[in-house]
Computed example of a mutant assay.
Amino acid sequence: MTLDRPFATQHETLWSQIADRAHVLEFPEIAGTRTRVLRVGEENAGRGTILMLAGTTGHLEAFTHNIRALSEHYRVLAYDYPGHGYSTLAEGSLEIKDYADHLLALVDHYGLEKPHLCGESLGGWIALKVVPEHPEVFGSVILSAPGGRMIPPAKLNGTQSVSADAVAQPTWENVKRRLGVVIHDEAAISDELVAVRQAIYAQPGFVASAKAIAALRTPEVRERNAVDDSDYARQPLPTLLVWTDNEPSGSPEVGAHLAELLPRGRFVLAEGAAHWPQWERPDVFNTAVLDFLESLEA
Results as ranks from 00 to 15, higher is better:
R266L: 08
E220F: 13
G111Y: 05
L38Y: 02
G58P: 09
I183G: 02
P252K: 00
D20K: 10
H84C: 14
P263M: 03
Q160L: 15
R34E: 02
D165W: 12
S209Q: 09
Q10S: 15
I183M: 11
A164C: 11
T57M: 13
M150L: 15
E271M: 12
T287C: 14
R47C: 00
V182A: 15
A127R: 04
L70P: 00
I189F: 06
T88V: 11
I96Y: 06
G147Q: 04
F27N: 12
G111M: 04
E247M: 11
H73M: 00
G111L: 06
H84E: 07
A145K: 08
L14D: 06
P277R: 01
T33D: 01
H11F: 02
L241H: 03
P282E: 04
T9L: 14
L179P: 09
A270Q: 01
L156C: 12
G147T: 04
T64M: 02
E95Y: 15
E72V: 10
A187L: 11
D228K: 07
E95R: 15
T33C: 06
P6C: 08
P115G: 00
L290T: 10
A215R: 03
V24S: 15
L240Y: 01
H59D: 13
Y81G: 08
L193P: 08
A208F: 05
F63Q: 05
H65S: 07
